[in-house]
Design a protein around this nucleic acid. Structure first.
Lengths: 338, 338
DNA sequence: CTCGGTATCGGAACCGGTATCGTTACCGTT
DNA sequence: AACGGTAACGATACCGGTTCCGATACCGAG
């Protein structure tokens, strides 16, 4: 097999210098139209694939945007990624996704790895990081955007919603509907800080109204319909008087709803359900489930936009803090006077 | 802000040459234990983040594994990615994911982009590519694994299932159960070649039994519960005599099932349903839906394993072709003698 | 004491591009 | 004809590591 073609080969074939070939292929100025065509033609003929590694080293920059998310399996982050892709679509920037598995140590190593590729930007889910990770982010020579959450102290830019507020609002909504015997089903908090914040806000607001949480169930596994269904069954058996359950995710509330469908419970007459995220999976169910919109797609789009604007202005822009509003929708799984 | 630390700074601080520092940090041989510790300590002290771009350029290789998938939103590819991550976990290799949106032109540019980073391996979903893409894959100087599908002509390694066979098997299963008035709901074929193959195999097998497809509906949008529900409603209205519907994806069959739940149709007495993929979302429903397991996780794991083995043996290993068996499960949505 | 071998380390070339700046050719002006 | 200005192009020095090979030190053996 013959060796991979390099710029020199293109240049030779086009009868120009490497420099001119480089400029021609990058659509850089200072190249005549005819030369440009000659070079591009030559590149095609020998099947030249540029070496971005060399290019990036020399120009001290890459067209990569690092994206750090805790998981791809949760249905929520793919939507964020779509937003990012959408925002980056018209630019030469490419997203590179890494997954942490909700592990801060892993996150640290993933951030180090991404930074070692000198990306044009870094988008990280969440505000909680190890000290080392945080200091790497702070001294990174590219824009850093923390997304999803605004309850905390951002390193630089930040786009998201307040999960504390989301929890409070849902509590207020449920109280408003008249529910008083309320259960909560959520992930083991250490794994998902944002779920914890929602729970905190939720409990606070209930407390403020003099209502205590009737029951509560935490799970360690991944969120799934199955887990939601099982835990709901268990909780309803244990606390038959419940009139409402708040889940840390729509995935779980759908699971709960499946339990109700399977056992003939009426929602919301027998039991009211509310989730979080406003995921796509809520569309198409026999009943619309109450939820809070977390604006995932927009968050991704806006994060991409921030990175792009740095790119355009060639300098640090002032830190952006954009707090979107977590919008509660009642659907048909809550009833006023429930 | 002070300049980013480079290897030279580490070396100076540790009182050794750049070469020794480089070796120490890479756990390369020819460094005494004491020196190694001194260097690593120095690196930590000044917060050294290695520049992989420079490292990759000079060593002519990177620890990246490119992964090309059509979409992340479909619930199916995240599971493949989990398998890949799992398989790569114990190695220094890192997956880099790019999305094509089921567009072969986009796929070509994404492959070019990934190859320009000189990855240690490339994992691509599907066997259908543009000519240019295929020739890039063929001349790539890293292992190339095409996954998901085995109906076609692999460039090098290939891990997947035969979707033709999957379609045939499901047809056989449905015929076996006694269904004769069968409908099909699937994506517009141009987008998803594997769905097309399943359909082809399915139709072939029906034909062989002298059964003609009673109705058929193709959609362009993304698969979703909602689309599945709507199209099912439309099809059942149009063809009231149907006794069974085969969907190109579990996402759609769940949507169909939701329609039945919402309208009080009994599954499988009134209508039988079958999907494809054996997705996680099938767990927890009131009724287990029939499906075919596509072995997504294992496929990802095995693909990673192939890349790793190239890494270990430092040379081309002979092309692997691994055809997994698409396993049909009846669940409760098909009934013998239906 | 000399020699060969091993462990440890350093110098220099190089990987494949790009930034920078200098050079050349060519144009219209005066 | 001399001149200044601009467009197009090329020579050179990097970018920050790693490979390759040679140098040095230290050891036990002869």
């Amino acid at each position: 097999m013959k060796k991979r073609a390099v710029l020199k080969d293109v240049a030779r074939r086009a009868g120009v210098s490497e420099m001119t070939a480089s400029r021609a292929l990058r659509d850089a100025p200072d190249v005549s139209q005819s030369t440009r065509e000659k070079v591009q033609q030559a590149a095609v003929e020998i099947g030249y694939v540029p070496n971005r590694i060399a290019g990036a080293l020399s120009s001290m920059s890459s067209n990569l945007v690092g994206v750090v998310v805790p998981s791809l399996a949760s249905y929520v982050f793919p939507e964020v990624l779509s937003g990012i892709s959408q925002g980056l679509k018209a630019s030469p920037l490419k997203p590179v996704v890494s997954v942490t598995g909700y592990d801060l140590t892993e996150e640290e190593s993933v951030i180090r790895e991404l930074l070692s590729w000198r990306p044009s930007g870094l988008i990280v889910a969440g505000l909680e990081h190890s000290d080392a990770a945080r200091s790497m982010l702070a001294s990174a020579d590219c824009p850093v955007v923390e997304i999803m959450d605004t309850d905390g102290d951002p390193v630089e830019h930040c786009i998201g919603i307040s999960h504390l507020e989301a929890g409070r609002e849902m509590a207020a909504t449920l109280l408003d509907c008249g529910y008083r015997r309320i259960g909560f089903i959520g992930t083991k908090m250490a794994r998902d800080v944002r779920a914890q914040k929602r729970f905190t806000g939720f409990a606070e607001r209930l407390d403020q109204a003099g209502v205590v949480l009737t029951d509560q169930e935490l799970y360690e596994d991944q969120s799934s319909f199955e887990t939601g269904r099982n835990l709901t069954a268990r909780m309803l058996e244990r606390s038959p008087g419940l009139d409402c359950i708040y889940y840390s995710s729509d995935v779980m509330s759908v699971g709960g709803y499946m339990h109700c469908l399977a056992t003939g419970l009426n929602v919301p007459q027998d039991i009211a359900l509310a989730g979080f995220n406003n995921l796509q999976i809520l569309r198409g169910l026999p009943l619309e489930l109450a939820t809070t919109d977390a604006h995932r797609f927009e968050i991704g789009e806006m994060a991409a936009e921030i990175v792009l604007s740095h790119q355009r202005h060639h300098k640090k822009t002032p830190p952006v803090l954009r707090r979107l509003h977590p919008t509660v929708s009642l659907g048909g799984s809550l009833a006023r006077g429930g």
